[in-house]
Every structure is written in structure tokens, then in C-alpha cells.
Write a protein that binds this DNA or RNA. Structure first.
Lengths: 153, 153
DNA sequence: ATCGGTGCAAACCATTTGCACGTTA
DNA sequence: TAACGTGCAAATGGTTTGCACCGAT
């Protein structure tokens, strides 16, 4: 199974899930899902809106927010914690658990197929009577492109 | 050296650093530092303002923001990435490197004297030509108190 | 035809900024 | 007294909400 095939299948899964749960199909909703699939990395709302407006000039940010909320509630999209203030980033779930490298300059993030969560951390949480829901792990710094700009300026 | 002594000494270090760098001492600035020291855990700006207004009823949020910025620039305070939207949290640096347990309900966070950052992650970043500045690791879930409320409601 | 979804505009909220005044060094 | 720091008020920017209309089922 190629990466494209996997992604395509996932798109179908999402659409199927929406149907099952009684959500309607609208071009906008389809486009939001499509944007996340095509990007294959976390996108900020602004990035999504910019991309989407190429095909749907009237696409409004609220619609993107509302659809992201629906997709998060369905568990097919995850909110990546926001480093800096460029707003939140979202990515499609369903791939193996992983984390991110986040650029502090441009905000772009790339996937890091690695997870540092370990038994030791779980146990420390337990000791605090803390009911663990999940965790975040992000490495931040300058991405390739922003290092270039740094040094050339 | 007790924990109190260490903290006290750190307070002096901070004040000394401010003097060296040419910053002025104001009651507000002193109070912001004091609040972080007393809390000994990450505080949100709102929490700080609430505490500070007990002694300085006129304390304004902008002053807190401005002082936090100064302290961050000096490297004595760190911004903890914000889980959810209750605003950012800040904590005094200088203690051993650690991470946090963050409650998704009340936003409170407690320190986790553990760091999962490992050579493997560093290397993956290097492979991406990513210039690492730092990292975040947070475990989120329900704290003791909020579990109680969950079950009793 | 019904009800969910959309765009628009306004509301919100954390954070930042401009400005005139007060305070520290 | 010369900056710097402060409070206030207004601006900013991401996100949410109210509302009337439109389109999917």
C-alpha cells in the first residue's frame, strides 16, 4: 500500500464517518478535509483558509473553525499545541503516533516519528493522582528555511 | 541548603541581574518576581494579577505582561506552552530542568522532575537541518481536584 | 420541507501598544 | 532631571457566537 493509497483510504474513512454520524457533505467540509490530507502535516487555520480560498473564494474562517471542531470531536483531527502566537495548528489523525519539530520563526512544523513518553513519566503522574489523557512533546527551533534567512539578514 | 534558602538566593540573583542590566526596581516588578517565587509553579497571568492585586490593587495586567517579558528576555522566567486557551503560563527558571503535568479542566500545572528528551530525538532533528532551541513535554489530564468534581457532578 | 451548515458581522479574550504621567536612579 | 516603568484606553489578532439565509438530505 503506497502512502497515497493509505491517505486516500483515510479520506474515505472520514467521509464515511461523517455520513454515519449524520453530518452533511458540503463542498466546504470536503475541502477542509482535502486540505489536511494534501498537506500531510499540521496546518494553521490561516494556512488552510489561504489554500481553500484558491478554490472557494468565499470560504470564511469561521467555517474552517467549525469544521475543524467537528473533525476534532469525531477524533479524526488533532489540535497541535500552539508554539508562539501564530494560532493553533491541526492535523489529520490516523497515522502512527508521533510528535513535531516546530519552527519558532515561521511556525511550520514537520512530523517527528518518535515518542518519548515512557513508563517512568506515567508512573510519576500516577503518583500525583493525575488522570493522564495524553501528552505533548515538541522540539522547537529554526527550520532549514528560517536558518537561511537568519544568516542572510 | 533548604528549598527556601535556594529560592531566596535565587530571588537575590534575579534582583542582582536586573541591577546589572540597568533595569529599575519598582514595587510592581518586585511583586511579580515575588509571586513567581512564592507560587513555585507555573502561573497564568490572570492568577498573578489576582494575587498581586491583593497587595497592589492598582496592578494592571499590562505591567505584569511587560515585566514577564523582561524576565523572559533575561532568561530567568520561562513561558510554558499553553494547553487549551486559558492563556500562557510562566515560571521561574533556575531549577533543574523539568516538565509539567497540566490539568485540562482548571489549567493548574505541577512540576514533573523528569525529561524525556533523548539523543534519538536530537538526531532526528539534526537530520532535518533543524536548529534546536528547546523542547516542550507536557502530560495533560485531570488533576486530583478536578477528578473529584468530575465524579461528584 | 427540515435542519444542519454557511457567511457576515459583532462579540470575546488574551496580549500588545500609544500616550501622558509618575518614579527610580 | 532623564530614562524607564506604570496605568489607562484603545488596538490587535485569533477564535467564537448570533442570526438570517441557503443548500443537503
Amino acid at each position: 500500500m503506497t502512502s497515497d493509497e493509505r491517505i486516500q483510504r483515510q479520506a474515505e474513512d472520514v467521509l464515511e464517518l461523517l455520513k454515519v454520524k449524520g453530518y452533511k457533505f458540503t463542498p466546504q467540509r470536503r475541502a477542509v478535509i482535502g486540505a489536511l490530507i494534501e498537506a500531510n502535516r499540521p496546518l494553521s487555520v490561516k494556512e488552510m483558509v489561504d489554500r481553500l480560498r484558491e478554490s472557494y473564494p468565499d470560504m470564511s474562517a469561521d467555517t474552517v473553525y467549525r469544521n475543524l471542531k467537528v473533525l476534532c470531536d469525531l477524533g479524526v483531527v488533532s489540535l497541535i499545541s500552539q508554539q508562539g502566537k501564530e494560532g493553533a495548528r491541526y492535523e489529520l489523525d490516523g497515522r502512527p503516533h508521533h510528535h513535531h519539530l516546530v519552527c519558532v520563526t515561521c511556525g511550520k512544523s514537520v512530523c517527528l516519528p518518535y515518542c518519548p513518553m515512557q513508563e517512568r513519566a506515567e508512573e510519576m503522574a500516577r503518583r500525583e493522582d493525575f488522570h493522564v489523557l495524553g501528552h505533548t512533546f515538541e522540539i522547537f527551533g529554526y527550520c532549514r528555511d528560517c536558518q537561511r534567512e537568519e544568516s542572510s539578514s
